[in-house]
Design a protein around this nucleic acid. Structure first.
Lengths: 243, 243
DNA sequence: TAGTGGTCTAGACCACCAC
DNA sequence: TGGTGGTCTAGACCACTAC
């Protein structure tokens, strides 16, 4: 058994090194979702720390959402909450604000590609894999997406069987490439439909459309995805929480 | 000196009662912004707690953004970050994404009023004060706002001298009514300009406009403001962070 | 009942800041 | 140099969970 506080910068306090060590063990799949990690007392013994220090380290991962405490039972690896706001891209609502289901997805294109300038600016590389999809609710196309991910982090994504791709990409990023999307920036604006967008979305050229540009970041703050999505402005609702 | 852990539910753990007690003392203005609160050792003595428990209580207020630690110096009451995302309503950017300044504000109407149905749904009362303003950048009108606040929390707001009202309302809510806006929900959609909106924003009737509906909540989670704002969709940019 | 996390104590030493 | 927050220890007792 490895009882060392590892690789991370030795100048960091013990609780931070424990936190990073545990994060690595989680990332390595040592404990899978809904499995308890060793008890705090056990970890304290393993790493020769006091329970208080272990608690502080675990606290960090709990507040990051990687772990979940259950009193009297244990501390569990949390299944990434891909159903949270972040992972919905945005929530389609009907005009009364009722939450609708996650749109289904139809893959239109996926290939190695040169990134457009905006994607280069966001990702810092021109070597990307481009994905184009059309998302629909009840067979009505609502959202036309172009998605760019860097080849360096997503090698092989372009040949991943289509069957493995559900409507949500972020769980897939995590399961296949170990990339955990932690944060994103959305920018909304307004435009009129180009010929391509109009034909995909069953609109007329020049119809008003909403445009969402998103840059997604992993847990270390590196950009891992840039996407631009377009939908008819008419039924568009974007909801966000500010704190 | 009051050395009691106060009013709050005695079943709560000590650190939570200390946290609430300190929050109350801050709200009472006992320590103003950029003033240090007593040291952790002093608080431990005052309330007959150990330093560790005091730290945990203070931690809560730090993570809520009410306090700020400065190592070697003390723990300070943080001036509410009214320049943060929340307090900008939304950020106007030019087409290159450059951050522009806070729009100036022209008051059009302010009066006791019956709330429209959407505001009632958000605020839970029909007794409100309605404010209508037009916000401009470089004398160009960009945003037409209707704002509703409950009379119960904002008694006298309708007669507050106009000179006291800057472009940002949330600092004013805090200074005059003790209401600290902590969280908000924005919902964006697109529409076309009505006659009123068009005339205020120098648009033509039917021009595309962006609509933002916001509900703001105080620190206890009570809704304290509902507003609806409209601006030309053409230059519209809304940026948000998702975590 | 045994084991877990939740709370709390009473210290210790360190890094940093202001005087 | 004295006081502050930052880290860490080695315990204690409690509430809760699972068996």
């Amino acid at each position: 058994m490895n009882t060392e506080l590892s690789t991370t910068d030795a100048r960091l306090p013990a609780y931070a090194r424990l936190r990073d060590t545990l994060a690595a063990r989680i990332a390595n799949g040592e404990w899978t979702a809904d499995q308890p990690i060793p008890s705090e007392a056990r970890l304290a013994q393993e790493y020769s720390l006091s329970v208080g220090t272990v608690r502080k380290g675990v606290d960090g991962l709990v507040s990051e959402g990687l772990l979940e405490r259950r009193q009297g039972s244990g501390t569990y690896v949390k299944a990434p909450s891909f159903d949270a706001t972040l992972f919905r891209f945005f929530q389609w609502r009907d005009v009364d604000g009722v939450q609708l289901s996650i749109p289904s997805s139809k893959l239109i294109l996926r290939s190695l590609n040169k990134a457009p300038s905006e994607a280069v600016a966001a990702l810092g590389t021109t070597d990307v894999i481009k994905t184009v999809r059309l998302r629909s609710l009840s067979d009505v196309p609502v959202l036309f997406e172009e998605i760019y991910v860097p080849v360096s982090k997503f090698s092989g994504f372009e040949v991943l069987p289509e069957a493995d791709m559900g409507p949500l990409l972020y769980p897939l990023y995590f399961e296949h490439f170990g990339v955990l999307v932690k944060r994103a920036t959305d920018e909304l604006s307004f435009d009129t439909a180009s010929e391509v967008a109009a034909s995909q979305l069953c609109l007329k050229i020049g119809d008003p459309i909403a445009v969402i540009r998103r840059t997604a970041f992993d847990i270390e703050g590196n950009p891992v995805e840039w996407r631009i999505a377009r939908g008819s402005a008419a039924q568009f609702r974007y909801r966000t929480e500010i704190t």
